[in-house]
């Protein structure tokens, strides 16, 4: 209810440390060096990025790490003027392009920003390449996004 008298305001804020595990730690270390590190299930051969502790299909611990290239394919996309916010809905000035990017050699896709193109140029199956942040710090946001190869 949003009536002036009938509600009281309250915010919920709590600090958490999320344990990333050694597998994700390796991935984040890789990002700091502008490298993609995934992992591979020894049973089914599926390559995950970001790395997973467990292969869902096989219910096996994944031990093997693999280097992956910084290019891949756009497997799905959307674009929106709405900011993705956990605080309150608001519209951004710029339309944000969002894509699922499957790196060459990987079996899973990452949801990341798509940059340096226009929404009307986006196509499923187009080749894309990473854009790194200038000063990577070992965080997911070191990946600024992906841009079309050849600058579509």
């Amino acid at each position: 209810m949003k009536g002036e008298i009938l509600t009281t305001k309250g915010a919920v804020r709590a600090e958490f440390d999320f344990w990333v595990g050694l597998y994700l730690d390796k991935f984040l270390d890789g990002l700091e060096q502008k490298k993609f590190i995934g992992n591979k299930c020894s049973k089914c051969g599926k390559v995950y990025i970001p790395p997973r502790k467990i292969c869902g299909d096989c219910f096996e611990h994944i031990e093997e790490y693999v280097d992956l290239p910084d290019i891949g394919v756009l497997t799905n996309f959307t674009f929106t003027k709405w900011a993705i916010s956990e605080r309150r809905p608001r519209q951004s000035k710029n339309i944000k392009m969002i894509g699922l990017v499957k790196l060459d050699g990987a079996d899973s896709a990452m949801l990341l920003p798509i940059l340096k193109t226009e929404p009307e140029n986006l196509k499923i199956g187009m080749k894309v390449q990473v854009v790194w942040s200038e000063k990577p710090q070992g965080q997911p946001t070191d990946i600024k996004g992906f841009k079309p190869i050849g600058g579509a």
């Binding site: 970001p50 996309f77 929106t80 993705i84 949801l111 997911p140």
Partner: peptide, 19 residues
């Protein structure tokens, strides 16, 4: 996922439905 999707911050019920 607080370790990847939350810092990247692109997923909500609008964008998930769009995909």
């Amino acid at each position: 996922d607080p370790t990847f999707d939350r810092p990247i911050n692109l997923l909500n019920d609008y964008t998930a439905a769009a995909l």
